[in-house]
Simulated assay, not measured.
Amino acid sequence: MGFQLTADGFAKTIDALKEHYLIYAPVLKKGTGRFTDTDIVRYDFVNEASEIELERKSDYAFKEFLTPLSETLLFFTEDQVKAADIPDKPVLIFLRSCDLHAVRRQDDMYLNNGWTPDWFFKRRRDLVKFVLIGCKKSYQNCFCVSMGSNRSEDGYVFSVETDGDGFACDVPDTGFVPFFAAGQAADIKPSYVTKNDFEVRVPDQVPGAILKHALWDEYSSRCIGCGRCNYVCPTCTCYTMQDIFYHENGKVGERRRVAAACMVDGFTNVAGGGEYRKSQGERMRYRVLHKISDHKKRFGENMCIGCGRCDDACPEYISYSNILNKVTDAVENLGKEVQ
């Protein structure tokens, strides 16, 4: 079931939803971009429908509610431990199809990747429902079609996209139909792109010989190890733990989970001063093969969803999508050599 809404009708829908949900959506932040006097689109809690950015691609991913860059997990004293409080009100997260596919990758890593689900992630995950933002066009650096994440058939309670001066919403979850009382019933299906400007090829299998391939050497000189590609990625899940002590005796404080980045110095440091993958080329190899090989072996699908944010964010103009094609070419050539 779908609805056509005027701008005023959509505002009334958001006002009605606010009574029951916190709303977390992409927001245009004017003048706060990475360079002087540039804008950026990033996620935040919103109070008005007009704050929700539906036209521009978000520079950062939705995941900062589920996995904040820095999150206090628990507080401890000498004889007590208390889990940190989180919002107890349900949350609606507005996201595009590629990011909705990324949710499944997050679930795989935190809920299905071991003998028990990550309790701290799960309690946030249980609060969340998703709103799909329809995509009428492909954005710069997107390659979602190649990764199969351009379309979502389920997993959302309703969709929304601009339609002239108004809005079009598909509402598959009947429990949300009452929120659209200001709309006109219509047959609506979410828009999705069928072709990107850039196509990516990913090998079905990656042979071990690719680990020593010369293609990685280029990135030892080009990559500066800033980690931007990791922090904007909706499927990167690595973190480190930090204990913050309030007193010198070390018995009162808090434990934090802090986002980590495989492209940054120190990620592979071990006791005794050892460090694996010292060069940026080795780190790039790890990141790329984890996205298109390691994750697939464990969970059956590529970790990368083709949002292209890593390409958008890189200050050295390193294209991850180009790397994937280079890897595929190298794999195909290795296969020819074997023959």
Rank of each mutant, 00 (worst) to 15 (best):
E161A: 15
E161Q: 15
T162H: 05
D163M: 10
G166C: 08
G166W: 04
F167T: 07
F167E: 12
F167R: 13
A168V: 07
A168I: 10
D170S: 14
D170F: 10
P172E: 03
D173L: 02
V177P: 00
P178F: 02
F180Y: 10
F180D: 08
F180G: 01
A181H: 08
A181L: 07
A181T: 08
G183Y: 06
Q184E: 14
A185Q: 13
A185K: 13
A186T: 05
A186L: 04
A186S: 13
D187W: 03
D187C: 00
I188F: 08
P190C: 09
S191H: 15
S191M: 12
S191I: 10
K195T: 11
N196A: 00
D197M: 02
D197I: 00
F198V: 10
F198T: 10
R201M: 00
D204R: 01
D204N: 03
Q205V: 04
Q205K: 12
Q205G: 00
V206F: 04
V206I: 15
G208S: 09
G208N: 14
K212R: 09
K212G: 11
H213I: 07
H213V: 02
H213A: 12
A214F: 04
W216K: 07
W216I: 04
S220L: 00
S220R: 01
R222T: 14
R222F: 04
C223V: 06
I224T: 14
G225Q: 09
G227R: 03
C229Y: 04
C229V: 12
C229G: 12
N230P: 09
N230W: 11
V232A: 03
C238Q: 07
Y239V: 02
Y239P: 05
Y239T: 12
Y239A: 13
M241T: 10
M241K: 02
Q242L: 10
I244N: 11
E248D: 07
G250M: 06
G250W: 01
G250S: 01
K251T: 12
V252R: 14
G253I: 11
E254R: 11
R255E: 10
R255Y: 11
R256W: 14
A259M: 12
A260C: 00
A260D: 15
C262P: 09
V264Q: 13
D265I: 01
D265T: 10
G266K: 05
F267A: 08
T268D: 13
T268P: 00
N269D: 11
N269W: 03
V270L: 12
V270W: 02
V270I: 12
G273F: 04
G274N: 13
E275G: 03
E275S: 14
Y276T: 07
R277F: 15
R277K: 15
K278V: 14
S279R: 08
S279D: 09
G281C: 05
G281K: 04
E282S: 13
M284R: 01
M284W: 14
R285N: 06
R287G: 01
L289K: 05
I292V: 12
I292P: 05
S293Y: 00
D294K: 02
